[in-house]
Design a protein around this nucleic acid. Structure first.
Lengths: 192, 192
DNA sequence: ATATAATTAGAATATATGTTCTATAACATG
DNA sequence: CATGTTATAGAACATATATTCTAATTATAT
């Protein structure tokens, strides 16, 4: 089968994620990523077609780690209180996988997707629209009287926890005491 | 006095702010900034020593527009309710000066300060520490029982409004209806 | 008018960095 | 053990863009 690779594709993405988390995607050069992954720069191009595609992959992987539990919690929620639990996905991910947390909550989606191949963009668009759709359905179910229900739910379940963890990231990990504060603030934002 | 300049120094900074708001500071090239300001690229270097120094200036100007009213409101606050008003500086700035809002609340301080001259960094450090000091004093005054008062106040008055406006910026301007939501969420975050 | 200063104007240069290329090494299979 | 395949290894190349440079322009002051 030929010479074995020093690292796996997933390890390359993980190394790129660490570099991007530290420096931001714009300053994550191929040289730095290769050094972090302990492979020569040329080897990077045996795995991915371009730096832009790799950065997109980094974002997509982090975004999926967030979206999966968030959508699961929110889609199943039959009460506002249950929906509010989804707000805790943000601090939990930041603790469990700080690099993914920093990628998602410190840097911006567009920085990672700039110049990315069409396929990566399409995947990113699907993730984003799945999130919005789920928020819309939950709003119709749980805030039927509120004309701007989806907007309000987005503020409470996305905006509030995002802002809360940003007080800590990237220097520190959000402490456990943050979670009840997020819940209280999200509940208040929903007017509940 | 020599040939008159096409634009003032302030106009160059404003043009740089618009470009940086659109593309992010990393992709704000000197060529783009010069085009936006309608001056040749070389002229930029008659005003500022480097692109990095210009980006730092953009951030510092935006940061001062935020810090001044925020500190004023918070320093004068003799009650938690008065302090909570400071949380509204964030959405107000985003409406009154969207470019400054995007610079401060969409992009990151470090992106603007990367490679900046020492003097700019020192100014930025002073702004940041003035903010932290004021938050600390307010916490001791208004939340004397809370051992982590400053942290909590930061979450409520900085993190919550930041996350809330981020739901809208940079695509849209935060609507006026957002303000009572921010106040409610900030109040809840303070446990009041 | 003429000299001087400050700027415009944009070409030239330097540098950083993404990408490709050539050679070599390590593994599997017949 | 020869051959084919895949990866390493890092140098070479291409490109984008920050910065500098030379010349031309337009104001003020004497």
């Amino acid at each position: 089968m030929g010479r074995p690779a020093h690292i796996s594709n997933a390890q390359l993405i993980a190394a790129a994620a660490r570099v991007a988390a530290r420096t931001g995607p714009a300053r994550a050069t191929v040289a730095k990523i290769a050094r972090e992954a302990k492979v020569p720069t040329g080897s990077v191009y045996h795995r991915v077609p371009s730096r832009a595609a790799l950065m997109a992959e980094v974002w997509l992987e982090a975004a999926e780690r967030f979206t999966t539990p968030f959508l699961e919690q929110l889609a199943a929620a039959e009460s506002l209180e249950a929906a509010i639990e989804a707000a805790l996905v943000t601090p939990r991910l930041s603790r469990e996988d700080p690099a993914a947390g920093v990628v998602l909550f410190v840097h911006r989606r567009d920085e990672f997707l700039a110049g990315a191949p069409e396929e990566s963009r399409a995947r990113a668009a699907r993730l984003t629209s799945a999130l919005q759709q789920c928020l819309g359905q939950a709003a119709r179910r749980l805030l039927p009287k509120d004309a701007r229900g989806r907007e309000r739910l987005t503020i409470a379940l996305v905006g509030v926890p995002y802002g809360a963890v940003r007080v800590f990231l990237p220097q520190a990990v959000p402490p456990p005491e943050l979670d009840p504060v997020i819940v209280a603030a999200a509940r208040a934002a929903l007017g509940a």
